[in-house]
Write a protein that binds this DNA or RNA. Structure first.
Length: 761
DNA sequence: AATCTAGTGTTTTTT
DNA sequence: ACACTAGATT
């Protein structure tokens, strides 16, 4: 910390004004990092004292403000690097901020407390682990381990795991942790009708078990430090002394425990700066509380609020459409995106001063939709656009499959962002389990995972004996295993297998000391038989798994110690593979937050899918608003071009399901959109077409969406009209709401359909 | 202890 | 359709 102070010694530590006397910069000649900001951004950077909420709309230069503020605090001598706490949600955001701050200062910065909530929580918890009943080398469990542990606890507590699904109980416990509630403080009134009213005691047992294993789950990384700050005045005072300034990114996504943690830390100097956008809050289902940002001014009286509304990313039509859409939400802090100066340039570059309209494409089915995306992407590429600047953003993961298949067929390179991450692959998790046992023999979960992997004859019976012994003598599983072998309590293959493994670990530990973690790890994987297991596996993916293990060792080599590597894996878990290149990106809308592309495809805007029916069933109007925010996030990812589409029929599970266009489409201003697509053709044209089913024999109108768009023809249909639908046949209209009809069909019963899809019969 | 079979549930998932 | 899991089977 002292070193940090010296680093900024060129500037006065006493100076409480923004521009110290010995600074070369003055208000009329500000530092370059200030000069490039617009007035609102600059206000957000320079308002250093007291609580500050920066409402930063999409594309308004949020990251620039955060990093400039960070640099400003350091360069004005307000604080040393170690005295600023900067919190983000993603590792990517943390890395980006670190790099940009270093670039602004012209040198790498040491001793920063900059990272994700979880990484910083872990750092704090390791410092004071003893006060939380852990030792500082505790293991961080991933979701998989958590669930397995909970299952064990449920069994021990005699809670029937068949009647009460463990994942549901896990979710319950996580929600409590998200709200900063350790077992003892979960109110009795919150005991749900679950597990025979014993959820709280299972939670308590689960926590006890974690402690015994010297392990923390993800929720604990915030829950436990917050409890420490709450209950230990000395620790709290220590951090109050340390952190003069606190910066928080994506504040709209914080949950209650993160809020409590921040509030406790901010009580010291009250220099809390939170940046966020209530319109981009899309993680409520993970415990995020949008109320945190809505309540900021009440929570921190005297807070300054700065709105960043000048968007430098998207064209005017995109901004107008996004603004119109999000205006349908209530309970917003209120903020309207408007084009910033640079956007007009972007618009001209795109071929017209105003920019392209939002393209709304109506398709017959999801296959046709996939073809449309593929062909338009291909056409754009032929026109000289980069595939890396195109993204397909979907509501649900399964939607990517149809599009992937199409892109493969036409040979267009793509990447799927998200999905299975490197460290979630089975072989990597196995290798990690070996590493964990090596570092911490008491890691029962890891030991259990690998004790019979590869198969060495240690079955259920042997494992049960180990568990019993471990419980009776209060030792870790590996220790119990050793005693069982010594006592001759295990027989045959089980005895040989366990003895072999334990001898191996003794050897590998010695090797770890002598020759380092990379050699030890490689030897361990070979000598344990793990590598051989995959070499002998004839499955088609076995070679790939061996390749992944090599990659694992390469990654390991970049770390100084195994423990450091394990922390990195638990906290950073990134998919390094196919990171960039000339490819179209496919991902969920959730995964797209914070990214931007020239061209954005938004397929699947259909009722039920988007907004998602399940989401609506669970959360009602609040969920509908969150779905709408998701749509807003999607639109605002685009710099120059948006193609929204919906299909009348979608492949689902085994069969087909029909769907009406999303209500969000009606919320886009007609003046900013341009319609096209086969399913948007006039009724007359469709009547002339052969009956649609079965789909396989329906002739395709491949280039339909390239035909001149026609305005949708509104039917003069009234209640009682007899109508014909291509899929459902004949029926009678029972109600009319705008372009939506409730129709009782003679063969398929009542359905809600769009008037475009029926004809008067 | 390994393998087969019937049953189940298929939204989003920063750490 | 399909993948994953728990339970039964050998």
């Amino acid at each position: 910390m002292a070193g940090g102070l010296e680093q900024v010694g060129a500037f006065s530590m006493i100076g409480s004004v923004s521009h110290p006397a010995n600074s070369p910069w003055t208000p009329s000649h500000p530092a370059p990092y200030l000069a490039r900001l617009n007035p609102e951004q600059r206000e957000a950077v320079e308002a250093l004292d007291g609580p500050l909420l920066v409402l930063a709309g999409a594309g308004t230069g949020k990251t620039r403000v955060l990093t400039a503020r960070f640099a400003h605090i350091l360069l004005t001598g307000r604080a040393a690097p170690s005295q600023v706490l900067a919190v983000t949600f993603t590792n990517k955001a943390a890395r980006e901020m670190r790099e940009r701050v270093a670039a602004m200062l012209g040198r790498p910065v040491e001793g920063l407390w900059l990272g994700t909530f979880h990484a910083l929580g872990a750092r704090m918890l390791r410092r004071h682990a003893d006060r939380a009943g852990l030792s500082s080398n505790f293991t961080i469990l991933d979701a998989d381990d958590q669930l397995r542990l909970l299952k064990q606890v449920m069994e021990a507590e005699r809670v029937d795991a068949k009647r009460w699904p463990p994942p549901a109980l896990m979710a319950l416990i996580q929600r409590w942790k998200d709200r900063g509630l350790p077992p003892a403080r979960v109110p009795e009134s919150e005991e749900p009708e679950f597990a025979g009213g014993r959820t709280r005691s299972v939670y308590a047992a689960y926590q006890a078990r974690l402690q015994a294993l010297n392990a923390a789950d993800f929720g604990d990384l915030l829950l436990l430090p917050t409890e420490l700050l709450r209950t230990d005045p000395d620790i709290l005072a220590q951090y109050h002394r340390q952190f003069r300034y606190i910066l928080v990114d994506e504040y709209q996504d914080t949950n209650l425990v993160q809020y409590l943690w921040l509030r406790l830390l901010a009580q010291g100097h009250r220099n809390l700066c939170c940046v966020g956008d209530d319109d981009q809050s899309i993680y409520s289902w993970r415990g995020a509380e949008i109320e945190n940002i809505l309540r900021f001014e009440k929570d921190f009286p005297g807070a300054t609020v700065v709105r960043l509304e000048r968007n430098y990313r998207s064209t005017a039509p995109i901004l107008a459409a996004a603004a119109a859409l999000i205006a349908h939400n209530e309970g917003r802090l209120g903020k309207t995106l408007r084009p910033g100066a640079e956007t007009e340039t972007a618009g001209r570059a795109a071929g017209g001063a105003a920019g392209e309209k939002i393209q709304l494409v109506a398709l017959w089915d999801s296959d046709e939709e996939a073809r449309m995306v593929g062909e338009r992407a291909e056409a754009l590429r032929r026109a000289g656009e980069s595939l890396a600047e195109m993204a397909v953003l979907v509501r649900a993961g399964f939607q990517t499959r149809a599009i992937e298949e199409r892109l493969i067929t036409i040979g267009l390179p793509y990447r799927v962002v998200g999905g299975l991450r490197f460290y979630e692959r089975a072989e990597i998790r196995d290798a990690l389990a070996y590493a964990r046992v090596l570092v911490q023999p008491a890691d029962d979960l890891a030991f259990e995972r690998i004790v019979n992997l590869p198969r060495r004859g240690v079955g259920e019976t042997a494992l049960r004996a180990m568990h019993e012994r471990a419980r009776a003598e209060h030792t870790p599983l590996s220790e119990a295993a050793a005693r069982l072998v010594a006592a001759g309590a295990l027989r045959g293959k089980a005895r040989e297998g366990v003895a072999f493994l334990l001898a191996g670990f003794a050897r590998w530990r010695a090797q770890l000391e002598a020759e380092g973690h990379v050699i030890a790890m490689a030897t361990m994987l070979d000598e344990s038989g793990y590598t051989t297991m995959w070499q002998q596996d004839t499955a088609p993916d076995a070679p790939g798994r061996l390749e992944n293990l090599k990659e694992f060792l390469r990654a390991l080599a970049e770390f100084e110690s195994l423990a450091g590597f394990l922390d990195h894996v638990a906290l950073v878990m990134e998919n390094e593979a196919n990171a960039d290149g000339e490819r179209v990106s496919l991902m969920t809308l959730h995964a797209a937050k914070g990214l931007e592309f020239d061209t954005v495809f938004l397929p699947g805007w259909e009722e039920g899918l988007f907004p998602n029916q399940r989401s609506l069933d669970e959360g009602g109007i609040k969920s509908l608003e969150e779905e709408r925010r998701l749509a807003y996030v999607g639109l605002t990812r685009a710099r120059r071009r948006v193609i929204v589409s919906h299909a009348a029929n979608r492949r689902l599970y085994s069969g087909w399901q029909s769907a009406i266009p999303s209500r969000f489409l009606d919320e886009l201003p007609e003046s900013e959109i341009e319609r096209s697509g086969s399913a948007a053709l006039g009724r007359a044209a469709r009547q002339a077409a052969p009956v649609a089913f079965p789909l396989q024999v329906r002739p395709r109108v491949q280039e339909a969406w390239e035909q001149a768009p026609r305005p949708p023809q509104r039917a003069a249909l009234a209640v009682g009209s007899r109508v014909f639908h291509e899929k459902f046949g004949y029926g009678t209209v029972t109600s009319v709401e705008n372009d939506r009809l409730d129709v009782t069909f003679e063969t398929s019963g009542p359905k809600r359909v769009l008037d475009r899809f029926v004809v008067a019969a």
